[in-house]
C-alpha cells in the first residue's frame, strides 16, 4: 500500500452528529483513511438494525441524550467524551480490503490491540467484533459497506457511564439493575486497567500502529470537500425515517460477546434469563397465576440450543409464534 493513498484524520472533539457523519461521508466519497476523534457530547448510537424499542425513549428524552443510527452493524452503544473513536475506511477495490468478514476485524483491529499492549493491557480479538482484556470487553466494533468502501468503527473506552447506559434500557427496573451489574462485571475501561492514561499519548500510539498497518498515512484534516459531503448526507442520516427503521426487538440484550440478558413477554407470561457462554442461567418465568417453577427448572442450565429450548417451551406453553421467538432469543438469537 503506497503512502498517500490513505489519510490520517486526527480531528479532536467533534459534535455528536459530526462524529458519525465524518466517516459515512469519507466512505460515500470513496476516500480511504483512518479517523481518530472524540465526541464532545454524549449520545446513543444505534446499529443499522438495532431496535429503537430497546431504549426507554422517555428516559433518553428526559436526559436530553440524542440518538443517531449509523449505516453499519453492531448494537446500540453509548458514546461520550470518555472514548477515543477510530473509524477505518477502505475502498472495496483496495488490496487491504478483505473478502472474509472475520479477516476485516482481525486486520483492522490489530492496531487497537497493539495499542492496548503498549499500555500493558494484554488484549485479544474475540469474534465477532469485540476486543477483550482481563475477561472484559474493552472495545466494541461495528462494520459494513458504505458507498463503495468498507468501514469499521469502534472506540477505546477510557471510562464508561454504566448508570446512563443501564438506565436507558427499556427493561423492568429489576432487570435494568441486573444489566448494570453485568455491565460492571463484563465491560472494562482503561481507567480500570491502567494507572494513568494520557489520551494524547494514547492517540499517538494508535495513530502509529495504524500507520504501520497501512504502510504510512498522509496527515489530513476536515477538508472543504469532506465538510460539503457531511452536509449533503446529514439530512438522510438524521431524518426521522432513518432513525425509526430497524428491526423489532427480539428480547435479547447483548452485554458482551457470550453474555446476554433475555426479557420477553409471551401473552400473559413474562420470561427473563441470562445467557452465559451458551448456557441459560437465572431463569424466571412469571405466569398469570404465579411463578412457573417447573419451566424455570427445565430451562435452568440448559445449553442455548434452539431446538432443545423450543421443545421445552412448546411442551409447556404450546407452539405459538411467540414461543418460537422466545426459543430463538434463549438460544442467542
Amino acid at each position: 500500500m503506497r503512502m498517500g493513498e490513505f489519510r490520517l484524520l486526527e480531528l479532536g472533539y467533534m459534535g455528536w452528529k459530526q462524529s458519525q457523519l465524518v466517516y459515512h461521508a469519507l466512505a460515500e466519497m470513496g476516500a480511504g483513511g483512518v479517523v481518530l476523534q472524540r465526541s464532545a457530547h454524549t449520545y446513543f448510537c444505534l446499529g443499522m438494525f438495532s431496535p429503537l424499542e430497546d431504549l426507554d425513549l422517555g428516559f433518553v428524552r428526559r436526559r436530553g441524550v440524542p440518538l443517531f443510527r449509523r449505516a453499519i452493524g453492531g448494537g446500540t452503544v453509548l458514546l461520550d467524551r470518555e472514548q477515543l473513536f477510530y473509524h477505518v475506511v477502505v475502498p472495496r477495490d483496495s488490496e487491504l480490503a478483505p473478502v472474509r468478514t472475520s479477516t476485516l476485524y482481525r486486520r483492522f483491529l490489530k492496531p487497537v490491540i497493539q495499542t492496548y499492549g503498549e499500555l500493558g493491557v494484554k488484549a485479544t480479538y474475540r469474534p465477532a467484533s469485540d476486543i477483550v482484556a482481563e475477561g472484559r470487553k474493552v472495545s466494541g466494533n461495528g462494520a459494513g459497506v458504505v458507498g463503495d468502501c468498507l468501514v469499521l468503527s469502534g472506540s477505546m473506552l477510557l471510562d464508561f457511564n454504566f448508570e446512563l447506559m443501564a438506565g436507558a434500557l427499556n427493561l423492568p427496573a429489576h432487570l435494568r439493575q441486573r444489566a448494570l451489574e453485568l455491565m460492571r462485571e463484563r465491560l472494562g475501561t482503561l481507567r480500570m486497567m491502567v494507572e494513568e492514561v494520557d489520551v494524547h499519548e494514547l492517540q499517538e500510539v494508535l495513530a502509529g500502529r495504524f500507520e504501520d498497518l497501512f504502510g504510512g498515512l498522509e496527515a489530513g484534516g476536515l477538508s472543504l470537500e469532506l465538510l460539503r459531503e457531511m452536509r449533503r448526507i446529514e439530512p438522510r442520516y438524521t431524518s426521522h425515517e432513518w432513525l425509526r427503521q430497524g428491526r423489532k426487538s427480539n428480547g435479547l440484550l447483548k452485554i458482551a460477546e457470550g453474555c446476554y440478558l433475555v426479557h420477553l413477554r409471551l401473552g400473559g407470561v413474562e420470561l427473563s434469563a441470562e445467557l452465559h457462554e451458551g448456557v441459560v442461567r437465572r431463569v424466571r418465568v412469571q405466569g398469570e397465576e404465579g411463578r412457573m417453577r417447573e419451566l424455570e427448572d427445565a430451562l435452568e442450565g440448559c445449553r442455548a440450543e434452539r431446538q432443545k429450548i423450543l421443545n421445552i417451551l412448546a411442551e409447556r406453553l404450546g407452539c405459538a409464534d411467540d414461543v418460537v421467538r422466545a426459543a430463538q432469543a434463549l438460544s442467542g438469537g
Binding site: 465477532a128 462494520a143 459494513g144
Partner: peptide, 11 residues
C-alpha cells in the same frame, strides 16, 4: 436489500 452478519452490514 441490507443484510447483517457478524456485526457487518452489507448491501
Amino acid at each position: 436489500a441490507t443484510i447483517e452478519s457478524a456485526k457487518f452490514v452489507s448491501r
